[in-house]
Write a protein that binds this DNA or RNA. Structure first.
Lengths: 334, 334
DNA sequence: TTGAAAGCGCTAACAG
DNA sequence: CTGTTAGCGCTTTCAA
């Protein structure tokens, strides 16, 4: 079942069929209806593989670091929702936790002539991302800074961290500690959200004249990281009265460590997370958290991507969304 | 950068390059090394699109109903792990919650000449699955019954449900209720895991001479469904002493309803789930649940798929794995 | 407005 | 063992 069969069935040329299929310029209404009829009768579907050799594949690839992180799922929803109104089909990959894997996956997407890529929270070097974007329209989600080749969508993590600190301070807390995802590379310190959150925490503490109370446990954005980080903080000579975990999963781990230490939340210690994942909203947990509106981020990414596919040389754009604080039951006045 | 460039650079024919690239029969060692050198020097990568027109795309598509369900993520891990040892690249889609979406996605995968498909917990009619499998090697995960065209991997849901009932009976429970995902279609009653779990529950109750105590709330496999189902059950004149929720998310919803009714788990009522998701394992929840080993299921699916790609006419296989019960803190002696 | 024909990058007969 | 060549199904000039 090829375009030739359809052309024969409709009694026209393959060119005509191709044009009708792509809504291209220069087809009469009667030709359109004849071709459409033939397509329907034969149940013809164009081969994306063959198309790829000449034109578009109508395929967008999304690189996801981890399917288990519900925040990424929100972003995905936003991308999917926007793409549903278009001809593009979304395919994604998951489990790209390091530079090597990311390279493999982006290569695979390029090899398959995908029309555009959405890279969610990539860890690759900026040069690598720039290079990828040079060969295919690309939108990077969750990396600060701008690039001449790719568009980017971020959440204002500095503001987000400040929201938490402001909230805790307004509740009377002064010994507010932070659990961060450890980072040393200078580029990453400027670009990665986790580093921005830590910076936002520091800045906000200083703004509240609490520079002397700054206390950071440097682990990783995992449940385990949260557990270990909280244990560190709880072992301090003077215990913090509040912990700002850099991510909800981190807060979850912290919750375990706090319970293990025989303390209660928010009675003995207040706890806030970041991401406002379903986990945070879940009743028995009910975690105060910063909401990034991943759906909105995803929708913006998809919009930018489609724009760039249609106009590859337009200037790159940087969309920065503003987070909000969702106060729940894990934070309370001191 | 095409195969022609590589051939020219290496001073051989394109055929030679193609053969070396595919480890095909009939290449001398020196030709192999010359070609490999040229490929490396030029940084050449074959176009999957062009390959698709003649041979394989080395692409496997996985259709996932919902990225948020951690059990599906486990299956995905298993598939990915097995595929990592092969040349195949995995791409997935998510959010196929109904028949229309499933049709769209499977079509999209076929259009793109993917070499094989893994369909996770599809809801499409069996005829549709059979048809898909006729045009591309397919493995169906999570649908009971056998097909002449696709291989399948399932968990023994009847045994799984029996494990829960046995456990609760051994704790002294008799009034054991079940929250099921409502199903009426006869084919689906035979094939869908949720229907099998309900059947397993019934059979086990009968086996324990508790036919008279069978009590089913028919809602859906969602948190909301669990909440509503539990409310129904708690409103009975004589309340059940234990609830077997057909899935962990259902148990979560039930947990909320139970708390709302002012009851405690497992003090007033025991609760068990199904899937042994990360949620079930999470400390504060600590839900007794049936473990399906999604990773194992995924690995089996990938193995079967690769086998079938290499030998399309071999007989279809049905792999059925045996679940285990993970007892935690939500079930206790009456 | 319509169609003929070239060619996208690759694989697989087939011939040497 | 190596190379020539004819397509795979589609899009896109370029003429008619």
């Amino acid at each position: 079942m090829t375009i030739v069969d359809v052309a024969r069935h409709a009694g026209v040329s393959t060119t005509a069929v191709s044009k009708v299929l792509r809504n291209a310029y220069g087809t009469s209404p009667q030709m359109r209806s004849r071709v459409s009829a033939a397509v329907d009768e034969l149940g013809y579907r164009p081969s994306a593989a063959a198309r790829a050799l000449r034109g578009r594949t109508w395929t967008v690839g999304v690189m996801l670091p981890d399917v288990r992180n519900p925040f990424f799922a929100d972003i995905l929803d936003g991308v999917a929702e926007h793409l549903d109104d278009t001809e593009y089909q979304l395919f994604m990959t998951s489990g790209c936790d390091d530079v090597t894997n990311e390279a493999r996956v982006t290569e695979a997407m390029i090899d398959r002539s995908m029309d555009g890529l959405v890279l969610i929270a990539p860890v690759s070097a900026k040069e690598r991302l720039t290079e990828v974007a040079r060969s295919v329209p690309t939108v990077v989600v969750g990396r600060h800074g701008s690039s001449p080749t790719y568009d980017s969508v971020t959440d204002d993590d500095i503001t987000g961290a400040a929201l938490v600190v402001d909230h805790l301070v307004s509740l009377g807390h002064r010994r507010i500690a932070h659990i961060e995802h450890h980072e040393t590379d200078p580029v990453r310190l400027a670009e990665m959200p986790n580093a921005q959150r830590a910076r936002g925490y520091r800045d906000a503490m200083i703004a509240h004249n609490l520079a002397g109370e700054i206390d950071i446990a440097s682990t990783s954005y995992t449940q385990q990281g949260g557990y270990l980080g909280a244990r560190q903080l709880l072992a301090r000579r003077i215990r913090p009265t509040a912990i700002f975990a850099g991510a909800d999963v981190v807060a979850l781990g912290a919750l375990e460590a706090i319970a293990e230490a025989g303390l209660t939340v928010p009675g003995d210690i207040s706890l806030a997370g970041y991401d406002n994942s379903a986990l945070a909203a879940f009743g028995p947990i009910s975690l105060t958290s910063v909401d990034q509106d991943g759906r909105q981020m995803g929708a913006n990414a998809a919009r930018l991507l489609v724009e760039r596919i249609n106009q590859r040389d337009r200037r790159t754009a940087q969309v920065k969304l503003t987070p909000t604080l969702v106060v729940r039951r894990t934070t309370a006045a001191i």
